[in-house]
Design a protein around this nucleic acid. Structure first.
Lengths: 238, 238
DNA sequence: ATATAAGATATTGTTGACAATCTCGCTTAT
DNA sequence: ATAAGCGAGATTGTCAACAATATCTTATAT
């Protein structure tokens, strides 16, 4: 029997590097726009430059790193406009995911949505967590549950592996956003419930519309806050 | 002055390999599900395994290759369900792109749409090309023009660099789909015009709805044909 | 003093060799 | 005769050295 090593030893060394690098970027340990030298990183992770370069290529494909030939790689730097476009893209994708979830989720899965909603209500009654940039590492929050319920491998991949990491990055450039009044939190709760109701009724149109309305409202309010404008009675047109 | 080399020598060797590998996959030269050995590929392209492996990692990120550790890489194999999910994801993304195109396109760009529509009409009057899987290598067809007009870097990237290549692959597993009656072609033309009209009027809702209707109709008819069912008076609900 | 150009240095790009792992064919025992 | 176990071959994973390119420093000329 072999002694259990500390690191999970998930087969290829490259995958470990990808995970650790992504973690470092998502936690803000590596700041946005920071230039990374291969030598430094390979020393830091204790591996050669070969696997490291493959890991960089992988993260580059997920838009977390940007490379300029013969110059080096930098952590992606997201502007306010980038964030807005990201949230708009999310509306399209999660809207469709919600539609397909209404069509394809099992009865058991829809019950899990109710469980999640209750847990969410408990947690924000206690701590008032921020909704948009919520850490999805657990992979069982409401939005992720709905996305996976779509049974659409492309939607699941794009949303969970590309969009969510990019949104997570933005969380660390705007930590001051966590104000989120109790009022808004209760609105979010109602919006979440509207989505679940639509999915339970297998009403695809309503499910997409409800998700879109929820995300449009969140984006509008968030961008207004970030840009320092008054919220101006945010309209939630689907 | 240096003698011009045959290959464009676009900086990094890896990028050339990526382009050539992608080309080989998209043209069907490398069949779906085919197993690829690194040694064979590196011999074929006349490069070492280092850059080749980086290229493989890049294509893997675009879902064109699938890797199983210590076993090798295979060209992605797309089922009929995969294609349907792909087309559904496309509806979400291009629908939103059309919406943002209505909001952000310049006047000059909207005129280009008209030019493209006329050119498209000419070409299908002569050859009757298939619409869904049209080769987008030129990068100036109607759909690409609209997507770029959205000014949304994430939409543009996902649609052009991920979705379109995957759709292109499907083209070679279903060459028998090129029937496409003249009747359908004229309907497509009207749908295209409806999209352009909405964009010209800066009507975002209408632009998204028109694009969605167009793509839903195309998907419905295509899948019905591929699955051998009768088209059954395809409804085009937005 | 400033701007330009040439060289030194550091970093990225590439290569071939070495180690770890899997696959397939062969032997052997029931 | 068939199945399990072993070993040879092939393939993937990793590493350290070499070549190409960019960046920074320094010297020189205006």
């Amino acid at each position: 029997m072999r002694i259990m090593t500390l690191q999970p030893a998930s087969g290829a060394l490259v995958d470990q590097i990808v995970a650790r690098l992504e973690q470092a970027i998502l936690t803000g340990e590596l700041a946005q726009g920071q230039k990374l030298s291969e030598q430094t990183l390979s020393d830091r992770f204790g591996v050669s430059r070969g696997p490291l370069r493959e890991a960089i290529r992988t993260l580059e494909g997920r838009q977390l790193l940007e490379r300029t030939p013969f110059s080096g790689v930098r952590v992606v730097q997201l502007s306010l406009d980038d964030l807005e476009q990201l949230l708009t893209t999310r509306e399209a994708l999660e809207g469709m995911a919600s539609r397909q979830a209404a069509e394809n989720m099992t009865l058991h899965e829809t019950r899990q949505l109710r469980v999640r909603l209750a847990a969410f209500e408990d947690s924000y009654r206690r701590e008032g967590v921020d909704g948009v940039f919520r850490v999805r590492s657990a992979g069982d929050d409401l939005h992720t549950l709905i996305v996976r319920g779509s049974r659409n491998r492309w939607l699941i991949d794009i949303i969970c592996n590309e969009l969510y990491p990019l949104l997570q990055i933005c969380r660390f450039q705007s930590t001051a956003v966590t104000l989120r009044t109790r009022q808004r939190i209760e609105v979010v709760h109602r919006e979440h419930e509207a989505i679940i109701v639509a999915i339970e009724r297998r009403d695809a149109d309503a499910a997409e519309a409800a998700m879109r309305a929820h995300l449009v409202a969140s984006r509008t309010i968030l961008m207004a806050q970030l840009r320092g404008e008054p919220p101006a009675t945010a309209v939630a047109g689907a």
